[in-house]
Computed example of a mutant assay.
Amino acid sequence: MSDQPDQQPKKPFLYVVVCASGIAGDVGKLITVAQEANWDVGVVATPQGLGFIDAEAIEAQTGYPIRSAWRSPGDPRPLPPADAIAVAPATFNTINKWAAGISDTLALGILCEAYGFGIPTAVLPYLNSAQAAHPAYSQSLERLREMGVLIGAYEPHKPKAGGGADRFRWEEALELLTPELSAPA
């Protein structure tokens, strides 16, 4: 018998990157599913994505501040390092910038570095079919696949038709990441 107090094993840490999309306000669904699967969760929002979420509710749910901007040198890191990343919902803009290696926001900087760190990453695109028809989109998805990014199955919705929020499966992010995280290194 050890004299040490019982220590809980450290939970894996999931970054949820949230982009500016009409369904972003439902990101709490993904956070709940992740927490039920024994993850700790921190949210990183694109600057525009902040306007689509209830920051106070998300911070209460996760216990961590939402990150959206770079911290100053010497400031403490508000989130632990990520064991995995889920980008949900992922917009046309974020997907294309990420695939091109553009790092002009904290969210994109984290995503661009995740490749170099080997952090398992899943993306759940949410965009309309007019955006998806642009050749840059299919090229960007191909580049992300080549980088090992796991891509959700959501089919783009018709433009100006109210979106497809009822078909968006938040839990798919964890479904994609689970086999990746349980594979032998």
Rank of each mutant, 00 (worst) to 15 (best):
E180Y: 09
L124Y: 05
S138E: 14
P78S: 04
G118L: 10
L181K: 07
D83L: 02
N128C: 14
L124F: 09
A55M: 11
A132M: 06
I119E: 06
L144Q: 03
K10A: 14
T46V: 10
A20C: 11
L124P: 03
P179L: 06
P12A: 06
I102D: 03
E36H: 14
W170H: 03
T32Q: 04
P76T: 12
P159C: 13
V27D: 01
K158H: 13
I66W: 01
D104Y: 10
R167A: 14
D6W: 14
I85W: 01
T32F: 01
I58A: 05
R143H: 12
P135N: 13
N128Y: 12
V149Q: 03
Q4G: 00
I85K: 00
I85V: 13
F117G: 09
G101N: 11
T178Y: 08
G74E: 12
K11S: 05
L111G: 04
S140Q: 11
A133M: 03
P120V: 06
L176Y: 08
E59R: 05
G63Q: 06
I102W: 06
R169V: 15
L14D: 00
A34Y: 02
L111V: 07
W98A: 02
A24R: 01
D3L: 15
N96S: 13
A161Q: 13
S2T: 12
S103V: 05
I95Y: 05
P47I: 04
V33A: 15
D75L: 03
I85M: 01
V17Q: 01
L127R: 09
L144T: 03
L150H: 08
L181Q: 07
M147T: 09
L144P: 00
G163N: 06
R77S: 14
R77C: 06
Y64A: 00
R143C: 09
L150K: 11
G164Q: 10
Y126V: 07
S140R: 13
P47D: 07
E172Y: 07
K29V: 12
E142P: 00
G162V: 05
R169C: 10
V87Q: 02
W70M: 14
P9H: 12
V149E: 04
S21Q: 15
L111I: 03
L50Y: 03
Q48L: 15
I31P: 02
I110L: 14
R169N: 14
P5I: 08
A107T: 02
S129W: 05
N128L: 09
W39D: 00
P156M: 12
A185Y: 10
D54Y: 03
S72K: 13
A37G: 08
W98G: 00
F92A: 07
Q35T: 08
E146A: 15
A34I: 02
D54M: 06
P5R: 08
A88S: 13
A107R: 00
I102N: 03
A60H: 12
R167T: 11
L106F: 05
C19D: 01
E36A: 12
K160R: 15
V149A: 06
T105Q: 11
L141H: 03
P5Q: 10
P76C: 10
Q8P: 11
Q4L: 11
G51E: 11
D40V: 00
Q61V: 02
S140Y: 09
T178G: 07
A183P: 07
T178F: 02
P135R: 12
Q35W: 04
G118I: 07
T91Y: 05
G101L: 08
A173K: 00
S2H: 04
D166K: 15
Q139L: 12
F117H: 14
A130T: 14
Q61A: 11
A84I: 01
L108F: 03
A107Y: 00
